[in-house]
């Protein structure tokens, strides 16, 4: 192992889920630091993500949630720190590098191209060509094959309301669009899926649908990072909660160890999380 795992208080994790934490983390960051001139965006943050868990990242605006995630997924190049994927040191220079390594990101907005159909969106920049000379010489797309597999990807997430893969994404509801973005991540993310505020623009019912998809993804054994401002969603979906505060990590809690009020108190600095307190309570 190239990297020692962070201490983990297993006692606050429900018994049936503890086996997840027997394995080594799928994605780790150590001493993640980013600085723009005199502004410190991240001040040496450590993070571990395990396969089959939903790790929520919460924090106030400007606490460094998105910055941390962007450093892990190649959207930003950190000033310091190391990223490990499956224990191996990796250096992502562009989001494509992370994507090729099996890390998919679903952005809050800008996740899909409204004018293109669902299948085209799922396969955007990963188009598959027809077999034979039609594909190799004429570069012809395998539209039927992509539509069929796109349909399967969407079905796998338990989405019944999207039937026609040839329909333009702008004809879909907000929740369905997000479903397309998540399906895309699920279809190609072999290791980690990062969701940045996936429910921010959605109504109650659609948010529920997206949370169900997230749980579905977790069942398939992916490591999931969920960035969210919505505390009820975090407490519903997350296994562990990483709290960012002022560019650093204020602690990692679980929905069982702390309630929402305590979580928000730690997030805003009204309360300090003492690691001993967590272990002591066990």
């Amino acid at each position: 192992m190239a990297v020692a795992r962070l201490p983990l208080s297993i006692d606050h994790i429900p018994e049936e889920k503890r086996s997840i934490y027997d394995a080594e983390p799928v994605l780790s960051g150590r001493g993640m630091r980013i600085q723009w001139g005199h502004v410190v965006g991240l001040d040496g943050v450590d993070i571990d993500l395990y396969k089959g868990e939903v790790l929520a990242v919460i924090g106030d605006n400007g606490a460094g949630k998105s910055t941390l995630i962007k450093c892990l997924t190649g959207a930003y190049e950190p000033t310091g720190g190391t990223v490990y994927l499956d224990g191996q040191e990796v250096h992502f220079k562009r989001p494509q590098d992370a994507r090729e390594a099996g890390i998919e990101t679903v952005y809050q907005q800008l996740a899909v191209i409204p004018a293109l159909d669902i299948a085209s969106n799922l396969y955007l920049a990963r188009e598959e060509r027809r077999a034979g000379p039609l594909g190799s010489v004429f570069r012809m797309l395998d539209k039927r094959g992509m539509a069929r597999r796109a349909g399967e990807s969407v079905q796998n997430l338990g989405i019944q309301t999207i039937q026609n893969m040839g329909q333009a994404v702008e004809n879909l509801s907000g929740g369905q669009r997000q479903a397309v973005a998540v399906a895309r991540a699920a279809a190609f993310g072999s290791k980690v899926v990062v969701l940045d505020e996936p429910t921010a623009a959605l109504g109650v019912k659609e948010s529920g649908m997206v949370l169900d998809m997230i749980k579905q993804l977790r069942e398939s054994g992916l490591g999931i990072i969920l960035i969210s401002h919505n505390m009820p969603h975090v407490w519903e979906a997350a296994d562990r909660i990483h709290i960012q505060r002022l560019g650093g990590c204020a602690g990692v809690i679980t929905p069982q160890s702390h309630d929402m009020g305590e979580g928000v108190a730690i997030m805003t600095g009204a309360k300090k999380l003492v690691q001993d307190q967590l272990d002591g309570a066990a």
Binding site: P95, T105, Y107, L110, A111, V112, I113, P114, A115, L116, S120, L124, A125, E127, R129, F138, R139, M140, L141, K143
Partner: peptide, 20 residues
Amino acid sequence: QTAWGRHVYAVGDEPEAARL
């Protein structure tokens, strides 16, 4: 019929989403 064609539409519709 080609990926390049799709990319032209994508870049025209949402350049940032296409890039991401």
